[in-house]
Design a protein around this nucleic acid. Structure first.
Lengths: 203, 203
DNA sequence: GCGCATGTTTGCAGTGAGTGCAGTTTTCCT
DNA sequence: AGGAAAACTGCACTCACTGCAAACATGCGC
């Protein structure tokens, strides 16, 4: 019933292969640059055939980013669990701080990911796109929660987009500060700004 | 000196070819879908050789999106022209409302663009990426203006990202409403939310 | 343990994006 | 008019990605 439990050898092998492909892709691209690494290189490094690569990732870029495909669903679950008395901003903030803590735990992968994303605009686009996919879902959840229409009212689509902005900005500053700061704290700092309406800083 | 004036036949032809390629790409993809249109098709439709296509756009996707490459510079200029007494949010809002008016004037192209972008996630990524490129510049301008550090302080990077969110959300709602609303008004409505810190709507 | 159903891996052959280069044509300027 | 500079084009090449069908591994009932 629960998704986390390991079911059998087959499933475990698939997870391992997926992780191996992602880590090979990430490491090789970090070392040599995106256009000096072919899919064949990645497949060879992960010890599968080139054809198998495409059973796991639809494109080279996706393998390099390698995000958990179930992430949007977890976000949706986390939000549904928030008490109904919270405002949308409070619920998003709480869910995202929790998410940030989970991401910070993967402390090996994120610095590499952010490094390669920073070096290759095409990868930045892919990463942003995966955030954007969650945002679509998020907008509908927000519309549902506030009794507005996702397509026509301002708040659902804008707040969903802003939520992505908070995370991207936090990741950006996390990297810029050499990963010394706490990612959840950076996320919280972002939401402080949002809730305060971006006050002009005193000079 | 000024960039707007047409300099000669050569420059005018280049602009025309670029526009023709973009419009062919956009129209064909809207009609048939992204993967049923080849670069050769687009080049043939615009009456240039396939090889010439790549002198104008680095990829098929870029041709379909076809954004003005000088846009980030114009945004920077517009912002520098704002009075220094304005808060960052006020300046961004004013610049973006003006930008929205300019975009709404291109009323033939945007509905098609938004249609194809909506139908093809890969194109959405490219469009978002071009917004993100402006955001990089914007973050530095904001840091400069408020005397903060673009890399480490919250406001520059977050506000730059939020600015993009406001525009994307406005475009989304513009399309959802069948282009009956005024784009500048939708943008302004977004900024109202941002300035108010996303108040919980009354049920 | 045995064998069948099902899912996974792989090779092969093909399409089409994108690039470097070298030769030709067009525009510009004097 | 005539030469310099820029744009256009064809050719040959690499590599991402896909469909198909054959080999292979795993799970499961017996």
């Amino acid at each position: 019933m629960l998704s986390g439990v390991t079911v059998g050898l087959r499933e475990r092998k698939k997870q391992a292969t997926r992780a191996a492909l992602h880590e090979s892709a990430l490491r090789l691209v970090a070392e040599r640059g995106l256009d000096r690494v072919s899919v064949d290189d990645i497949a060879a490094d992960a010890e599968v055939s080139p054809r198998t690569f495409f059973n796991y990732f639809p494109s080279k870029d996706d393998a390099v980013i390698g995000l958990d495909p179930e992430h949007p669903l977890r976000l949706a679950e986390a939000l549904s669990a928030r008490p109904a008395t919270e405002t949308p901003v409070q619920a998003l903030r709480a869910a995202q701080v929790a998410e940030a803590a989970r991401m910070a735990a993967e402390s090996q992968l994120w610095p590499l990911r952010l490094q390669v994303v920073d070096a290759h605009p095409a990868l930045a686009a892919r990463l942003t796109a995966s955030f954007a996919q969650s945002e679509q879902l998020l907008a509908e959840w927000l519309a549902d929660r506030t009794g507005t229409r996702a397509e026509l009212d301002v708040q659902p689509s804008l707040l969903a987009a802003v939520q992505g902005s908070v995370m991207r900005s936090a990741l950006h500053r996390w990297r810029a500060g050499g990963y010394t700061a706490s990612l959840p704290a950076l996320v919280a700092e972002g939401w402080d700004q949002v809730e305060a309406g971006f006050p002009a800083p005193r000079r």
